[in-house]
Amino acid sequence: MAKNRTGRVGEQIKKELSVLIQTEMKDPRIGFITVTGVEVTSDLSQAKVYLSVFGDAEQKETSLKGLEKAKGFLRSELGKRVMLRHTPELIFKIDESIAYGSHIEKLLGEISHEDK
């Protein structure tokens, strides 16, 4: 039962954070960011937010620094939008799975091209 609740809370946090980052954030350091996933602990005290950032490594680093700086604002806005007793602490992480997937896709394309 608790696992089901953490999944629902994680999806709600993902949806709200996506909207907040796209519409409310005015920091020029933050580029084009997509929230790819949220993992919430079973006691709802922490939420790991996985982000996909468009750009090179420097852009990813500056966007992550901008989000770390705005963590308090995001958490307070999230508390207003999601009705929970305690708002989880946000931990931002870069999601490399999309880049890894495209790299594998490119390698498979090269292999199939060599076979022909």
Rank of each mutant, 00 (worst) to 15 (best):
S63Q: 07
K93V: 11
S97A: 14
R29G: 04
Q46S: 05
H103N: 12
L67D: 08
S97G: 12
E77N: 12
R5K: 10
L84A: 06
S45C: 02
S52H: 07
F73W: 09
L64Q: 09
A99E: 15
S45R: 08
M1C: 01
E58T: 05
R85M: 12
L108N: 00
Q22S: 13
T87W: 10
D95R: 11
I13P: 11
S45H: 07
P28W: 04
R5S: 12
S112Q: 04
I111R: 02
Q12Y: 03
V19A: 07
L108R: 02
G66R: 15
E68L: 10
E114V: 06
V38E: 08
G66L: 15
R8F: 00
P28C: 09
S97F: 01
S42E: 03
E96P: 13
I104M: 09
S63W: 07
S52I: 00
T87A: 03
L78F: 01
V9E: 10
N4H: 01
V40R: 03
V53R: 03
Q12M: 14
V82A: 14
E24D: 15
V82T: 14
E11H: 07
K15G: 07
P88T: 01
I30K: 04
K48R: 13
A47G: 02
S45N: 05
K65V: 08
F73S: 07
K106P: 05
T36W: 07
T34V: 00
L107W: 00
R8Q: 10
L107D: 03
L20V: 07
K15F: 13
I33D: 05
Y100C: 14
G10A: 12
T41K: 03
A57V: 07
G10M: 11
L20M: 14
D95Y: 14
K80L: 09
F32R: 00
G31W: 06
R5Q: 11
E110F: 03
E68C: 04
L44N: 02
L44Q: 01
V9D: 11
L20D: 13
F32Q: 00
E89F: 03
E110L: 08
A57D: 10
S97R: 13
Q46L: 05
L78Y: 04
E58S: 07
T34N: 03
F54K: 01
V82N: 14
E39A: 00
G79K: 06
S18Q: 07
L108W: 02
V49L: 10
P88G: 14
A2I: 10
P28A: 05
L64F: 01
L90F: 14
D95H: 15
G31D: 14
G7A: 05
S102M: 15
E114Q: 09
T41Y: 06
E68I: 14
S102L: 15
V19P: 00
S97H: 12
R5M: 09
K69A: 12
V53G: 05
Q59L: 12
A70E: 09
K106Q: 08
